[in-house]
Simulated assay, not measured.
Amino acid sequence: MLAVSDPERKKALLLRLRRIEGQLRGIQRLIEADTDCERVAQQLAAARKALDKSFFIMVGCLIAQGDTPPDDVADMLARFS
């Protein structure tokens, strides 16, 4: 089972996800304000990159726990990347 048990890692990940949540609310406001598509796309790309980084932090957590064989980690990366 994957769990973020390290308190510092957990705190950092939750903070990152809260920032992403704020980014997504900001994107919604841009769309509601009829902001040009390029600016909205730029913000979506930034949010996607932030989510990707969060995902890789979780993969690092999985690897650090040492319970998952390397082939399973590779399979997960292939499935979700």
Rank of each mutant, 00 (worst) to 15 (best):
L77D: 11
L77Y: 10
I31V: 08
L2K: 13
L51S: 05
R25A: 00
I57T: 11
D52W: 09
A47C: 15
V4A: 02
V4N: 01
D34K: 03
A41R: 09
L77A: 08
Q23P: 00
R16S: 06
E21H: 07
D67I: 13
G66V: 07
R18Y: 06
I20V: 10
D6C: 04
A50R: 09
K53E: 14
L62Y: 05
L14G: 02
Q28M: 09
D75Y: 13
A64I: 03
D75L: 09
L15I: 07
R16T: 10
D52S: 03
S54N: 07
L30R: 04
K11D: 03
D67K: 15
K11V: 00
F55K: 07
F80Q: 07
D71K: 06
A33C: 01
A64S: 06
M58E: 12
V4E: 00
V73Q: 15
A78P: 00
R16G: 02
L51P: 03
R19N: 09
L14F: 08
R29S: 06
S54V: 04
I20L: 05
L24E: 07
T68S: 05
S5I: 09
I31A: 00
G26R: 10
R9F: 02
K11I: 03
A46F: 12
P70T: 06
I20S: 01
D71V: 11
A41M: 15
L51D: 09
L2M: 11
G26W: 08
R39E: 15
R18F: 06
R39I: 15
D52R: 08
R19D: 05
I57G: 01
M58G: 02
C37P: 00
D36W: 10
L2E: 12
L2I: 13
R9N: 03
S54Y: 09
P70R: 01
L2T: 12
A33R: 09
A33L: 05
A3I: 14
V73E: 08
K53I: 11
L17R: 00
P70Y: 01
R16I: 10
R25I: 03
E8Y: 02
D71N: 14
R29H: 11
L15P: 02
L51A: 05
D67F: 10
S54G: 05
A12R: 01
A45V: 14
R39A: 11
I57N: 04
L77I: 15
P69C: 14
T68D: 09
P70H: 02
F80L: 12
D34F: 04
V40P: 00
R79C: 08
R79N: 13
C61R: 08
D36G: 02
L62G: 01
M76A: 06
C61L: 07
E32N: 06
L30H: 06
R48H: 14
A47Q: 15
E38Q: 15
L77N: 06
A78S: 10
D75G: 08
P69F: 15
T35H: 02
Q28Y: 06
Q65S: 11
L24D: 04
A12L: 01
R18L: 09
V4R: 03
L15F: 13
A3K: 13
A74S: 06
D6W: 10
K49L: 14
R48D: 10
A41P: 03
L77W: 14
F80W: 12
A12E: 10
A47K: 15
P70K: 01
D72P: 01
R19K: 12
M76Q: 10
D36I: 10
D6F: 05
L15V: 10
D71Y: 14
G66Y: 09
